[in-house]
Design a binder for these strands. Structure first.
Lengths: 196, 196
DNA sequence: CATAACTAAACGAACATTCATTTATATATT
DNA sequence: AATATATAAATGAATGTTCGTTTAGTTATG
């Protein structure tokens, strides 16, 4: 039998993400993707059931890669501030290293597709987070707040800084670049907020 | 001459926002909107140059209403924590009161259309924010950080909480409702982070 | 009765998806 | 080592549908 051409699969993936980031979900079509990836439209339907399945599979792969990168060198037995630091910087660096994937995920996260994406998430990640937070509270290293408040204060500011950076500008067209210094400065403030 | 039917304009607006929130930008079409609003497709082109113009005008109106609501009872001479409190709660309450508008704006904000939307923003809002922040730093009521860091820590957590709330769930499908208590609790942590 | 508001019907283009074929290669047979 | 066979991979062209937008004409009111 004929062998599968991995370059094609890679090309499809890369061009799909790029097209969605640059033109949005409504600028993304199967026919345009096929042309961009140098492939027949019919080929897309070998790998993906339909348009939505393609998008969701793309997202699942991106999410999984990001989750793995976030937990690099992380150990649940770490102190709260050290554990948060590791996760926070891992994630920030990953976002800066793979901006397209990041912007694609952010776009999906704020679209109606997010609901379907959430259903695909394995509960392990949530439980790990939950345990980390609850242990930190028990050890009195983290203020006593709900998981959602913790998450919002811990990570939302970082995503927002990355967003400003990738757009190259922030409020009112002001130029902005996210430096290491700013990253650590912000992390320090986040830890200050969350420490009892 | 014939008089303009305001109900129609309102219906167009309302159905457009609802359609975009529920089905995303790629589920939103001029023909579907016309049918939903009980209007001929051609009528849409009396009020809007084209599809993109319609979306951008919708956004501009939403943004303007939100900006106005944010500054209600705000006075630049307020202390930093009091001024932030007023803006923060104004904005949060507004988001909870008009969830559709909010979700529409958030979706656009994370799509490629955001770039064009930014060009439309009047510089006054940015300058007011800039002055407020710089004065607060001068008075030593706010840690010395860039505008972007301030914004990210001050408002990104709130938007994230509202997002969790409107979805009815947060990380891993966990149920979540944003209460007044949680709102104030989070604000307190944000102020703690930003106070020298 | 002038004119802006509004519409029904239509336009070609682009859409997601499918169908009938062709192509390439791993393996079985000589 | 050479050839045949089976079959997954890949395709070009077509499907009917929906898209954004326009045109030619009707309706309502100052």
């Amino acid at each position: 039998m004929r062998t599968r051409d991995d370059n094609k699969i890679q090309a499809i993936r890369a061009h799909a993400v790029e097209m969605i980031v640059k033109q949005g979900f409504d600028g993304f079509s199967m026919q345009k993707l096929a042309k961009a990836a140098g492939v027949s439209p019919a080929t897309l339907y070998i790998y993906y059931k339909d348009r939505e399945d393609l998008i969701m599979q793309l997202w699942a792969a991106s999410f999984s890669a990001m989750a793995t990168a976030t937990l690099k060198n992380f150990d649940p037995s770490m102190s709260f501030s050290e554990g948060l630091r590791v996760q926070w910087l891992n994630r920030a660096k990953y976002c800066l290293k793979y901006p397209q994937e990041m912007q694609f995920m952010e776009q999906l996260r704020h679209s109606p597709l997010q609901e379907k994406a959430l259903e695909m998430v394995d509960g392990g990640f949530k439980n790990a987070m939950y345990t980390f937070v609850n242990n930190a509270i028990k050890k009195n290293e983290l203020v006593k707040v709900q998981l959602e408040v913790y998450w919002s204060i811990a990570f939302a500011p970082m995503y927002n800084l990355v967003k400003f950076h990738l757009e190259g500008q922030s409020i009112g067209g002001k130029k902005f670049t996210l430096t290491d210094k700013v990253l650590h400065e912000t992390l320090a403030l986040v830890i200050k907020a969350l420490t009892p």
